[in-house]
């Protein structure tokens, strides 16, 4: 079944971005003065590549504004964790609050940017990232609240699954996390915007990846206009 499926799919170019590459490219979207919520996985890595000249505040939805670096062994405090349950520190000027207040600021649009991972995104901007039928369901955590309310959502994802099937689709096949919410995608192959009327607008190519590679890897409607620059990291 699997081999049958992969026959009709393209071969992946070998120069696609790794997780760090995706994180570095997303870090370039971060503007001075932003309040940002970073999801678990690649999004968490983004914090490592935000230039020190840019001042941002990272929100942890369990109840903290001002996530700092991981603690040294001596600094470890069991009362200080991020949404991924990792031990963290607090930046000077941090604020602590309840999870209700945390989601109040998310819902009311005070958080400027949400960066999260996805299993699928549709050309309408729908996102699926919480449940795979047949697998143990762990829960949506704060993902549904974040995607329903964020002013700006950037998705970090692989363009295709391991067997080459596109994850940028006409419509999601997995259970939805939120409708029409994704604005921008940074994949291992490209940077794309979701157009208000639907469709993925190609903005940049990963180094060494061609427009043709991206066309083959995108099952949803791809809009390509003019010269598509290679991304700088």
């Amino acid at each position: 079944m699997k081999s049958e499926l992969s026959n009709e799919l393209h071969e992946k170019p070998d120069r696609m971005l790794d997780k760090i590459g995706i994180a570095k490219r997303i870090a370039r979207e971060v503007m001075d003065g932003m309040y940002i919520n970073l999801g678990i996985g690649i999004p968490t890595l983004v914090a490592n590549y935000i230039p020190s000249s840019i001042n941002v505040v990272l929100q942890s939805e369990n109840g903290l504004l001002g996530i700092g670096p991981f603690p040294t062994e001596a600094e470890v405090d069991p009362d200080l964790i991020n949404a991924g349950k990792q031990t963290i520190t607090m930046m000077p000027g941090s604020a602590l609050f309840s999870s209700a207040e945390s989601f109040a600021m998310i819902r009311s649009g005070k958080v400027d940017l949400t960066i999260l991972g996805a299993m699928e995104v549709s050309e309408q901007g729908d996102i699926a990232n919480w449940k795979v039928p047949g697998k143990m369901v762990k829960g949506m955590g704060g993902a549904m609240d974040l995607v329903a309310s964020a002013k700006h959502i950037i998705v970090a994802m692989q363009h295709c699954s391991k067997d080459g099937a596109s994850k940028l689709l006409p419509s999601c096949t997995l259970p939805i996390t939120g409708l029409r919410c994704v604005k921008r995608i940074v994949s291992d192959m490209a940077v794309l915007d979701v157009l208000p009327d639907g469709g993925f607008k190609l903005l940049e190519r990963a180094p060494g990846v061609t427009v043709d590679d991206i066309k083959k890897a995108t099952a949803g409607k791809l809009v390509v206009g003019g010269e598509i620059p290679e991304m700088t990291l």
């Binding site: 670096p69 991981f70 603690p71 040294t72 062994e73 001596a74 600094e75 470890v76 069991p78 009362d79 964790i81 991924g84 349950k85 990792q86 031990t87 963290i88």
Partner: peptide, 12 residues
């Protein structure tokens, strides 16, 4: 006990 689920640290 205050057990820690994900002990993540950086080098001092």
């Amino acid at each position: 006990e205050k057990r820690i689920e994900q002990r993540t640290t950086r080098k001092a």
